[in-house]
C-alpha cells in the first residue's frame, strides 16, 4: 500500500463537505440555514477547484458566489420574510417522488462517469511528477483576446464583452424590477 496521496485526501475532504452541505441545503427547511449551508458547500467546491488547478476560478467562486450572490440572497430573505422564520412544508409525496427521480439520475450519471476508462484518473507516478502551472495569466490573456496556450484559437474578448454588457443590463433591469412601487394614493397626491 502506497503512501497517502494528499490531493486525493483533500479531494475527498472537500467533496465530502460540498456534498454534505448540498444535502443539508436540500433537507433544511429554514431558508437562512439553507443559505448558510449553501455558502459552505460553495466554499468547499471552490476548494475542489483549487485542487483541480483552477485557482483563479476558485477565487472567483469565493469572491462572487460566496461574497456577492449569497449576500443578495440573504438580503432577499430579510425583505421577504413575513414571519421571523419562513417555513414552508413540502408534501411528503413530493419528497418521495423527488428522491426517486433524483436517485435514478444520480445513478445514471455516476454509472456513466465511471464507465469511461479515460476519466478514472492518472497514475500515481505521473501525479507525483506534476508541477502546477499557474493559470491566471493565460486566463487574463484569453479574456483579452490572445491565447497563450494555443495561439491558433480565438480568444474570449467578444464573449467577455458580451457578458460584461449583459451584466450591466441585468443589474439595471433588476434595479428597475425591484424598485419600490409608489402606492396609488401617493400618485394621486402628486
Amino acid at each position: 500500500m502506497d503512501s497517502i496521496y494528499w490531493p486525493t485526501f483533500f479531494f475527498y475532504l472537500f467533496s465530502g463537505l460540498a456534498c454534505a452541505f448540498a444535502v443539508a441545503v436540500l433537507l433544511s427547511s429554514n431558508i437562512v440555514r439553507m443559505a448558510f449551508y449553501l455558502v459552505l458547500s460553495l466554499g468547499a467546491t471552490a476548494g475542489l477547484m483549487f485542487l483541480a488547478g483552477a485557482e483563479f476560478v476558485g477565487a472567483m467562486q469565493l469572491l462572487i458566489y460566496v461574497g456577492g450572490t449569497l449576500v443578495l440572497l440573504i438580503f432577499g430573505v430579510m425583505l421577504t420574510s413575513q414571519e421571523r422564520f419562513v417555513v414552508m412544508k413540502t408534501w411528503a409525496g413530493d419528497w418521495v417522488k423527488a428522491f426517486l427521480a433524483g436517485g435514478a439520475l444520480l445513478f445514471i450519471l455516476a454509472y456513466a462517469a465511471f464507465s469511461i476508462p479515460e476519466w478514472r484518473g492518472i497514475e500515481r507516478t505521473e501525479a507525483d511528477a506534476i508541477v502546477a502551472q499557474p493559470t491566471v495569466t493565460p486566463i487574463a490573456m484569453g479574456l483579452l483576446g490572445a491565447r497563450t496556450d494555443d495561439p491558433s484559437r480565438a480568444g474570449y474578448l467578444l464573449p467577455f464583452e458580451i457578458v460584461s454588457v449583459h451584466l450591466l443590463v441585468v443589474l439595471i433591469g433588476a434595479a428597475y424590477l425591484a424598485r419600490a412601487k409608489r402606492s396609488r394614493s401617493s400618485i394621486e397626491k402628486i
Partner: peptide, 24 residues
C-alpha cells in the same frame, strides 16, 4: 497563492456573512 489579492478580497467579503447571520 498566485491569486492572492483576489483571495484576500474574497475572504474579507465573507466576513459580512457572519454579520448578517448574527443580525438575522
Amino acid at each position: 497563492l498566485n491569486v492572492g489579492v483576489f483571495f484576500v478580497l474574497a475572504v474579507l467579503g465573507l466576513e459580512v456573512f457572519g454579520v448578517i447571520l448574527a443580525g438575522y
